[in-house]
Simulated assay, not measured.
Amino acid sequence: MALAANTHGRVVHTCTLSSKPPTLFSRSTAAVPGHHAHSLRARFEVRAIAERATWLPGLDPPTYLDGTLPGDYGFDPLGLGEQPEDLKWYVQAELVHCRFAMAGVAGILGTDLIRVSGISNLPVWFEAGATKFDFANTTALFFVQLLLMGFVETKRYMDFLHPGSQAKEGTFLGIEASLEGLQPGYPGGPLFNPMGLAKDIENAHEVKLKEIKNGRLAMVAMLGFIVQASVTHAGPIDNLLTHLSDPFNKNIVHALTSS
């Protein structure tokens, strides 16, 4: 029997089976209750660690990123999550940014389609913030948004500090039962989970993974929208139509070189 340390810093047992019969100075694994089962579990654990997908093939992930978090591929080149409390905060920060990015991408593409198709005379997304509305002035809208977002973010932060505290009776206008905050970052309930896709949030690993993957893709898309707007001064649908009209001459390479 040999001892081997895995990538998580734990010591696991490995066992080599021999065809030689047991002697006075050798011990059969069958003589130790549960030894064979333990050896098999250890081998499966080592194999699972060896086959774990990482953001860079062959990378040895940090010990604090053990693969239990949704979308954990061992990516932390700056070591920001070394402290457990910092890691919890960064997980929540990424989750919120993913959701904002997904909402932003959907909003930009939806309004751009309406604008380009001529259904409504909407401003392009990077000029929408300067639009003046008849029902309220810009200053009033800014302070209303500041108050609403401040309230929501404060509630989220309090739930992060004290999980489940914001779903207690009397904490939110009497509709706490509709939120059912079972885990930080996942309020759930009829308001945030109307289809009941993740009622058992503790075991909703596949749904969490899909959300974080789509959120990361949305953040990359938002970065692309920003770069496109800065270079071409046009919306994403306009950029797509321009590219499709002449793919070989109207693409990102020509746009960057001409700018």
Rank of each mutant, 00 (worst) to 15 (best):
A5P: 04
G9H: 00
R10T: 08
R10H: 12
R10S: 10
V12E: 09
T16W: 11
T16A: 04
S18L: 13
S19V: 03
K20V: 02
F25Y: 13
F25Q: 12
S26V: 04
S26R: 06
V32K: 05
H35S: 07
H36G: 01
H38L: 15
W55M: 06
P57K: 09
D60C: 01
P61E: 04
P61Q: 00
T63D: 11
T63N: 03
G67T: 07
T68D: 12
T68R: 11
T68P: 02
L69R: 06
P70T: 03
L80R: 13
G81M: 13
E82Y: 03
D86F: 07
D86M: 09
K88V: 06
Y90H: 09
A93V: 14
L95R: 08
H97G: 00
H97R: 14
R99Y: 06
M102C: 11
A103K: 10
G104R: 10
G104A: 15
G104Y: 08
V105I: 15
G107A: 10
L113Y: 09
S120R: 12
L122A: 04
P123H: 09
W125T: 06
E127K: 14
A128T: 02
A128K: 07
A130K: 15
T131R: 15
A136S: 14
T139C: 09
A140H: 12
F142A: 13
L148D: 10
M149C: 14
M149S: 13
G150M: 02
F151G: 04
E153K: 14
D159P: 05
F160N: 02
L161A: 10
H162N: 12
H162V: 13
H162G: 04
P163D: 01
A167L: 01
T171K: 14
S178L: 11
G181M: 03
Y186A: 06
G189H: 01
P190M: 07
L191S: 03
F192H: 14
F192G: 04
N193D: 15
M195S: 10
G196S: 13
K199Q: 08
D200Y: 05
I201C: 01
I201G: 05
E202H: 14
N203G: 03
N203V: 11
A204S: 13
H205S: 08
K208R: 12
I212G: 06
N214D: 15
M219T: 08
S230D: 03
V231H: 04
G235V: 06
P236I: 06
D238K: 09
N239M: 05
L244H: 00
D246P: 02
K250M: 08
N251I: 09
I252R: 06
I252W: 14
V253K: 15
S259E: 03
